[in-house]
Design a binder for these strands. Structure first.
Lengths: 347, 347
DNA sequence: AAAATTACCGAGAACGTTTCCGGTAACGCT
DNA sequence: AGCGTTACCGGAAACGTTCTCGGTAATTTT
């Protein structure tokens, strides 16, 4: 009935050795006789020993927890990123605690606090659509928990932290170029909030492609959305009242593109005959639409993998520095992942 | 530079009181002078004290972590459920650790182990598509961590644990009924794995609706899918080779329905003129399809809320029992949530 | 006025690890 | 033979809380 959980003390007693030795054996640390080690491990297995993460964390000041902050739970892209993160971190013994900011800067700050309270060993974060400041990231840095930002980063953050993104310029460029190659001439771009780095870059890519091909970039053709849901309609409205309507639309991301497709169809506009639509994300969902969505694939899973990798690197660097008594000097790293075109029916 | 984090000891020293009193004050426990309490809280705030969850957990044998196991990260339905869970649990000071089983029974077991290792205070789980046994749930019960199952439950589990689902029979019944009212006569049903409770119940609802209206339920019209991706095509193939093709299809859930729509369109079949399609889930995504998907809405967020509520109830019940020295006798609870029809264009 | 109750507080032992600091024995080297 | 290494291992102090048990003074009850 009273099944007290076995501890390393129990093991130590039964094997008549010290707890330190048991601890070393279990941790797979150096300086322990292979035979003793085997004995310990066998007994541990036999009596169903489970190490207390709490106690271990308390003693070692590590929690083996990594916090992940994403803007929304239901965006497929982030689901794929998390897969990549797990893939890298699980084998190392880390678990994930996932929180979401609901695309609000305020909640994002709270998320950081929660994670800091939990004493996570590191944080992976993708900024919300409307985040404008990076003070909360700074806070994490001050508490010496390493942090890396992925996908949604801040344009001109001076913070010396690793960031991993896809080559957003290329994404915008290739998307636009693809449409140009297909013969479209008046290509519009639906952007995101001004401060959003991915939006800026993709837009830049769009502009460059247009100009290189001798199409100007009339301001009419560039319209913003402030969120993923409601404002897509307004953005599209702006395009549809133009005297010269666009014959193709590049959307900032797939979710927006889905809505564009839907709204165009409601207006009875044929895709891609009248207007072509391009997304940027590579969501699987795009395949199921009619017409299916041509898009720029972002290597989401790889992004998670790389981000996790950078985080661990940073953690190790900090540990090493501390070990040598030096102070750690954080540096900015910006890693760009290559993108690729997925051509489907909407263009 | 060496900014050691403040602890309750620091507070105790500076206020010249004992750590126990500080602990009580911070915990908001009984038996502490309001003035002392205020002093403690003020100072804590001032010096930026953060309680160590690790230490607190170790001492109190609570982690204030709740584990959530879902089959897939990218399914919108589960995202919404998690929202509901958070809504209930956050105010109580609990954080969530979310893991996913990737629809595999084996991984599901591993998830349980991970959570148990983390000493979560409770587990909320939705079973994978292919889970057939509940031994791993038993394991959790043995370790005395309360567990509640939501949405995807086991048909005839004898385990005395709370479960919350939607009224799946009603869902199947209403979906079918809706089609019948619309004048469809040969209605097919795309089911899930045999052991899946939600599949059984929805199918039963379908059958009942058919029979009550004088349509038989020819076995031809009921086809299974074993997963959400590949096998939808095979299921549909089986329907399309029938001499008498169906004029409407009820899919087990929205993701399957999305695929059905797409596959039918590829065959050039008009929806809903030739064949109508119904989903069950209430995913927002359905709105964006063309035609948009008629579906049965499951109150996902409410489900999360209710499940979390049941979990806390159970936790309290266990604590009370222990306090009184009695042994806790777990009981099964089955809570059914009402569903509703969302009529759109696909029917 | 004595007894009982209440309100508040302190001491100190957990909780289950890790880690630092030594210590011993065996071995190899000059 | 003496000395430095190396390979293992143990003792004991952290880590930052909670919790049980008493204890004192003030307050109420009898």
């Amino acid at each position: 009935m009273k099944k007290r959980k076995p501890t390393i003390k129990d093991i130590a007693r039964r094997l008549d050795i010290s707890v330190s030795t048991v601890s070393r054996a279990i941790r797979g640390a150096e300086d322990v006789n292979p035979i003793t080690k085997k004995n310990v491990l066998d007994l541990a297995e036999k009596i169903g020993y489970k190490k207390s993460v709490l106690a271990a964390g308390l003693a070692s000041k590590k929690s083996y927890l990594i916090g992940v902050i994403i803007p929304e739970l239901t965006v497929p892209f982030f689901g794929r990123v998390i897969l990549g993160i797990e893939q890298f971190l699980k084998p190392l013994g880390y678990d994930l605690i996932i929180v979401h900011s609901d695309e609000q800067e305020q909640k994002e700050k709270e998320c950081i606090d929660i994670l800091l309270d939990r004493q996570v060993d590191g944080i992976l974060i993708s900024l919300s659509f409307n985040t404008k400041s990076d003070l909360h990231l700074k806070k994490a840095m001050e508490e010496e928990v390493p942090i890396v930002v992925f996908d949604r980063i801040l344009p001109k953050s001076e913070l010396p932290i690793p960031r991993v993104i896809v080559d957003d310029f290329e994404a915008g460029y290739q998307a636009t170029n693809h449409l140009i190659n297909k013969g479209y001439k008046r290509i519009a771009f639906i952007a995101g909030p001004e401060d959003l780095y991915i939006s800026q870059q993709r837009l830049k890519g769009y502009r460059t492609a247009m100009e290189r091909n001798g199409f100007g970039t009339s301001a009419d053709l560039i319209v913003p959305t402030l969120d993923l849901r409601r404002s897509v309609g307004q953005a599209l409205d702006k395009l549809m009242v133009l005297k010269e309507k666009p014959d193709a639309i590049v959307a900032l991301n797939d979710p927006i593109a889905f809505r564009v497709i839907r709204l165009l169809q409601k207006r009875g506009i044929e895709i891609p005959q009248k207007i072509a639509v391009m997304g940027i994300s590579g969501d699987d969902m795009g395949e199921l639409f009619n017409p299916s969505l041509t898009t720029i694939n972002q290597p989401a899973q790889e992004m998670g993998f790389v981000a996790a990798n950078l985080l661990i690197d940073r953690m190790n660097a900090m540990k090493d520095a501390k070990k040598q008594g030096k102070i750690f000097i954080p540096m900015a790293i910006l890693k760009k992942l290559p993108i690729s075109l997925i051509e489907r029916e909407s263009t």
